[in-house]
Nucleic acid binder design. Structure first.
Lengths: 341, 341
DNA sequence: TTGTACGCGTTATCAA
DNA sequence: TTGATAACGCGTACAA
């Protein structure tokens, strides 16, 4: 690399101390006299020392690396989540090696191998292709976020509570029939709670409840077409009745709002709509959409907290055999906008 | 770390080869007999060997790390950009250490120090707080994307061409007056080209051209209020004339569209609108917005390509003194939607 | 308070 | 084709 970089040995030679003393200057400065600290500080300045953490890692075994695997950064939820995860650097000092796995299981497996080769101390997984059982089998602490989490510790939004919040708001708006639009989410995925939470809340409130589970495909266009059909079905099946519609995410909710506005020239009183995520589109919509916000920042912090606990445990002499996975739930928050007050 | 991991020494002992031979198995397998390759392969399997790239780094000096600094991942452009940067792992094998600097200069400086301590081989910078002159002073190849780039190599969208595309489309739509809404972008930032490109294209076409540069502040609400004023001004100053409005980004363009739709119940024939970025909101809008797309994927690839070239050069015996920074421009693409055909 | 000596897990240089 | 030995730059017992 051109000129060799300045090392502890150089500083030691220059200051007539030993390498150990230089090392101590960084890791336990108080064990040196103030005078000598200053000498060393001056020498560092003089020689233009730059620290080399790779060498430190090899010697200490601590990389302070955490691996992150997201499905993509196209969906706002994931990028926002990553943003908040990165922000925990200020608290814990851990650095993040990030991979976007694109929902491809084998690709993600390769990424995990690579991460392990870099001696990551822990892993945060948001993608849902590799089963949690397999994740748990790597000898590294893992915390998952909003995905199947049977064998791993995890942090999720309390999706059931989210479904209930939506049902509650729509009910309060005086809706005669409560409808939930979603895809057929497997029970193992936390987001399934949006369905069950909504249905149960409807039952408790004694309100008519309708489930419309559709395959929204993968692209935007496809989803939009499906939503158009759903809209027509709504118009046909529930004419004149006040419909409270809870849509599984804001992007889909916005499609529905657009459809309604294009047809009726606005949001008729017979519609009330609630989305999920509080993603940008919910407030950018012509009619700002009421929604259920996931506390992304809190989720990220809890996840790093959980991970830190496991990583610390692992550094001890006799680490406990990890015990049962811990699952944390973060309460969602209702955001009232114009589609349902 | 619980059980010590299996090392070359263990494999060597087990197979009665030397550590060197084991190393060769990985880095130059053909220099071993096929027979011995198989023996070693078997031993690796047997003992459950996991590679340790940190040790390799220390010995070889090559980290295959690239540092990335983005302002945030809240804006879609940055997260999409990061997504595409991460995707280049498949081509080049470089891993990415990512920091979100939140537009705080000193924070970003700390992040850069940290990145350098991890012996990154190169850096991709999207945030705009640290001057390119300072970036160039670190002894690491740097490529910037869509930011001030005087002293660094860079890849940017050809913003002037983007402004011209917008002007062209609006002119073709038969607009009588062409208006550009933007903030007062400094000339050093590539995005300034959207202004100059637009203005020059108007002049060439001999069309009336109006610049409305406003301070849109930092939050969404603030920007929305500003856009409301801009809208009122448009209505007042150009009544009855067909207005071709080019807005600096899709989020703002959507605010304008919403304002118009709320006032007029739709998009009157006297308005044509073009945004910039092709971000999700442009097609999620009630009236899907015509826009100028940045070729994010191409930009990311060009950036990594440029960076790779510099990093390779640096590994040679007598690296050229880097010479002048290289600036690449990527052509934008016009996306015709409903607000301007 | 400071120093000695060794280890971390690879790669690189020679020599065989 | 293989091996012995010395780096790589730092941390850490243990000794002084």
């Amino acid at each position: 690399m051109g000129k060799k970089s300045v090392t502890f040995a150089d500083i030691a030679r220059y200051t007539h101390f030993s390498k150990t003393t230089i090392s101590r200057y960084f890791n336990d400065p108080d064990s040196l006299t103030v005078e000598n600290q200053e000498k060393i500080a001056a020498a560092l300045e003089e020689l233009g020392y730059k620290e080399n953490k790779v060498a430190r890692i090899l010697a200490s075994g601590k990389t302070e690396f955490v691996g992150v695997i997201v499905p993509n950064l196209y969906l706002h939820f994931y990028s926002q989540m990553l943003d908040e995860i990165l922000a925990t650097y200020e608290t814990y000092g851990y650095k993040f090696l990030v991979f976007a796995g694109d929902d491809n299981r084998d690709v993600e497996r390769r990424y995990i191998e690579e991460l392990l080769a870099y001696q990551i101390e822990g892993m945060i997984v948001l993608s849902n292709t590799v089963p949690s059982e397999e994740l748990a089998s790597f000898q590294v602490p893992v915390v998952t976020i909003e995905r199947e989490d049977r064998f791993c510790s995890s942090v999720n939004t309390d999706n059931r509570a989210g479904g209930a919040l939506a049902a509650g708001l729509l009910d309060e708006c005086g809706c005669e029939v409560l409808i939930h639009i979603n895809s057929d989410v497997p029970e193992s995925v936390p987001a399934h709670g949006r369905i069950s939470g909504f249905v149960d809340a409807c039952r408790e409130r004694g309100v008519a409840c309708e489930l419309m589970l559709r395959d929204f495909g993968h692209g935007y266009e496809e989803a939009d077409r499906t939503m158009r059909q759903v809209f027509e079905e709504l118009e046909e099946r529930f004419p004149g009745r006040r419909k409270g519609v809870f849509v599984s995410n804001d992007t889909y909710a916005n499609m529905l709002v657009n459809q309604i506005v294009r047809t009726h020239g606005g949001l008729p009183d017979e519609y009330r709509i609630v989305g999920f995520d509080d993603s940008p589109v919910s407030r950018e919509s012509v009619i700002p959409i009421s929604t259920v916000r996931q506390q992304v920042s809190r989720i990220a912090q809890e996840a790093m907290g959980l991970l830190m606990a496991q990583m610390e445990e692992r550094k001890k002499r006799r680490p406990r055999p990890l015990g049962e996975p811990v699952h944390k739930a973060v309460e969602p928050v209702l955001v009232r906008r114009e589609t349902a007050r």
